[in-house]
Nucleic acid binder design. Structure first.
Lengths: 222, 222
DNA sequence: CCATAGAACGCTGTATACAAAACGTAGTTA
DNA sequence: TAACTACGTTTTGTATACAGCGTTCTATGG
């Protein structure tokens, strides 16, 4: 591979897949609200803005459609899915169940990640911005599930988690709620430290039920 | 084809979205094994075969990738995912749990579909071909879940069900197994007729566990 | 006979082109 | 004013073009 005459690689392949980079950009635009719910997406304009052509942009948008962040109507094109409390009520129970399934099936190995869960949760409790809190909360739950060998399961959970990112901003904007979540995480950790699977499962479910209800209240309010 | 003299019959726009029609065609090719696991997909060739251009074909393939039937490698393109017992072990538990979740949350209304479940199951037991058996089994489970108002949940289940279609052919090729499944369906129906949710849930889980194990045996054998 | 360099070809990933549907706009009628 | 229509402009859905990486085939040397 290394060429004697040309020790520096001629040209490092700059990007992997344009469509994947575009998907991440779009995701950012949607999650941060720069593309608002209900807003129509003009392919040419966005593709110019992101400096790419429409082909990979459309591929990225179709991916986001499958993830539930965007929709298409025939001959009307893409729109950002509006925020909707119904989506919360649909996704949270699924997410809770799948995470519990992952933990159940990898119970024996969960103890190995308890120290890591503690560290992440400590940082999570100290998070000052919603963005950072979301990142750490996601990391915490991913770590909890990291011992599951069911790749399909973890990937489904990741997808669901993406879909609720926009909503979690509401939740994480309230530092009091962050602390409640952190306390619930501690309970989960304690249960697994005591080797009590069922208590752990119950605590995970509580974590999600509380999160969902808090979110629904926040959304109803404002 | 287009006749200048004849302005009236503009070729009836047969399809809604070409990419969706192509996805169904590809799905059929894969499920029926005309495109075999591991086989590489030549976009130009397939697009010619299906009489469309590469653009919507690729969109369809990317959709199938998200559904787990196909994969892409950078600069190598699409290949059909090989059949793999691991996939069964991953998907069946998820499927079972999600279906149970759907039934739990729509328990009160399940009784309304019991007659329909009976009819479908009777037909299912009489199915003579694997294809028809799969269709009726799918219909049966969809009917069982049809009272759930969680659209995200039912759509996730549908996607998972697609992913295991290829495997179910093995299962449904054995008419003895069809009869066992039909009997298990009867147990599920009976439980709900007795208004016994927990017994119903257990019976659903059994149905899936048995199906998975039978499938794993079949695959191991041959 | 096998291994290998290199050239020719094919394929993917991305860009661009094009036809038809949707949308907007201004003018017309009631 | 409100509804409708005719027409020009956007925008989508699909087709085609093109560059660069991979693959294959051939011919040469050991």
């Amino acid at each position: 591979m290394a060429n004697i005459r040309n020790p520096t690689p001629p040209k490092t392949n700059v990007h992997k897949r344009l469509r994947e980079a575009l998907r991440l950009s779009l995701l950012d635009l949607i999650v941060t609200g720069k593309l608002k719910g209900g807003e129509r997406i003009n392919e040419s304009r966005i593709s110019r803005r992101l400096k790419a052509s429409r082909t990979p942009l459309r591929e990225a948008l179709l991916h986001l459609e499958r993830e539930g962040l965007v929709r298409t109507d025939l001959r009307r094109g893409f729109t950002v899915e509006p925020l909707c409390s119904r989506e919360i009520r649909e996704i949270y129970p699924i997410l809770a169940h799948l995470e519990c399934l992952a933990v159940r099936t990898s119970f024996r190995f969960v103890t190995t990640v308890l120290p890591k869960l503690n560290r992440i949760n400590a940082e999570f409790a100290r998070a000052r911005t919603p963005g950072r809190a979301i990142k750490l909360d996601t990391l915490w739950h991913n770590t909890l599930m990291s011992q599951s060998k069911n790749a399909r399961l973890t990937s489904m959970v990741a997808t669901l988690r993406l879909a609720i990112r926009r909503y979690e901003h509401f939740y994480m904007a309230d530092s009091k709620l962050i602390h409640i979540s952190a306390a619930q995480h501690q309970e989960i950790i304690a249960a697994f430290r005591d080797d009590d699977l069922e208590a752990g499962i119950r605590a995970i479910e509580e974590n999600y039920v509380f999160g969902m209800q808090a979110l629904l209240r926040k959304m109803g309010e404002e």
